[in-house]
Write a protein that binds this DNA or RNA. Structure first.
Lengths: 220, 220
DNA sequence: GGTAGAATACCTACTGGACGGTATGCGATT
DNA sequence: AATCGCATACCGTCCAGTAGGTATTCTACC
């Protein structure tokens, strides 16, 4: 597909710079000039890889899916895996510029319409799949709808993350995540399952590293 | 202060139009031209009342505080009041353009920094006050921190609202709110108190109407 | 293994348009 | 008659995108 290694490198540089600028300024306020400058490439190079500002933003959003796709279960317990996923995501929100930019663009629903619906859906689907496993294992409260719970959890995580960012620059994100799980789990899982779950973060680092295979090309 | 009734009317028209446009496009993508057009006023009129685009946005954000300030407890039970407040807010998010625009601007943390922190804080403080009352009444789980719970609740509501907007244009907002309370309350209040609380929406309409006294003037 | 030439990858300079904000003037209200 | 409230016309700036040329890398053939 992409022929030269050099091309891949500049493409990645552009994507990273774009993610950073989109994260800091938002889509509309971000300027191509700042992205160019930060990536250390020229306008011609950028527009060779990405046909427009919007196309570039879509490629950044796609990075979120790439991150999620690298996630692997961390426990036999689906609920525990869900909690671990939440913490890994929280770390990515602090450390991984691609994820940060992607999330900001996803939250800004203005300019586009379809793509960030897909992004939300991906998270919700992942959570629902884990919750369905938990239900089948008899861990959840009877009558609890995994889809509804998945919606609540993804929404809550989204909002927790957002308020943490606005209020403290995400400095208290981990604490807020712990608070969320502490208060939410009793309404989801039965007491016998609750006893086997660690609500606090387990592994200090956690999460997939930088995605090895970058976003699929949306170019040309 | 404001001398003529006509002036107040145009000011309100501008504010309303601005709230709508900010809600639909976001701060940066919103143009003054569209606000002018929708308000049916000219540039001179607008800039007489608001010195800049940012000042106009701040006035819109202030509408959120005005809405919250008109809220009055709806029940003897603080927790029930909190739930009712959530539903009233959900209705305002659907019906009240000022609240919608204000929320969108609050969520976009890019251009400003201070004001929307205040907006978040107001919600968090309101929730914390109610939760402290609930704690003093012995309704909460012992050891539960009202401030932490308030943070979780405001964050969760923020995110629920946001995902509902992106995914369904807020059509399922009420359902998602009900889901949230159903799953969250067991982690907050003790069983004996839980029995006295209605998690579903109680009054069909609900919430303060359009704020009678508009936002305090930031113009001069 | 050297070279023509064809893609591929990138650079520079420019453009057209839109946008926020201002200067100035004029009727209405007090 | 003086302030208030608003209208019109204009300005400087900045930005996404493009046109057209240049460098780099790959392929093919000798």
């Amino acid at each position: 597909m992409a022929r030269q290694a050099r091309a891949l490198a500049t493409r990645q540089a552009v994507l990273l710079a774009a993610a950073e600028v989109f994260d800091e300024r938002g889509y509309a306020a971000a300027t191509m000039s700042e992205i160019l400058e930060r990536a250390g490439v020229t306008k011609g190079a950028l527009y060779f890889h990405f046909g427009s500002k919007e196309e570039l933003a879509l490629a950044v959003i796609e990075g979120q899916g790439a991150w999620l796709a690298t996630w692997r279960p961390t426990s036999d317990s689906p609920v525990q895996t869900l909690i671990d996923l939440g913490y890994a995501f929280a770390h990515a929100l602090v450390d991984d510029p691609m994820v940060r930019g992607s999330i900001r663009l996803t939250i800004e629903h203005g300019s586009f319409t379809q793509p960030q619906i897909a992004a939300y859906q991906r998270w919700s689907d992942a959570a629902r799949a884990l919750l369905e496993q938990a239900r089948d294992a008899g861990d959840l409260h009877p009558g609890l709808d995994p889809a509804a719970a998945a919606g609540v959890i993804t929404g809550a995580v989204t909002g927790i993350q957002l308020s943490s960012q606005v209020l403290t620059g995400r400095r208290d994100l981990l604490q807020r995540m712990a608070d969320l799980w502490t208060m939410l789990l009793p309404g989801l899982v039965q007491p016998h399952a609750l006893a086997r779950i660690s609500v606090a973060e387990r592994a200090p680092g956690g999460g997939p590293g930088q995605a090895p295979t970058p976003a699929a090309g949306t170019g040309d």
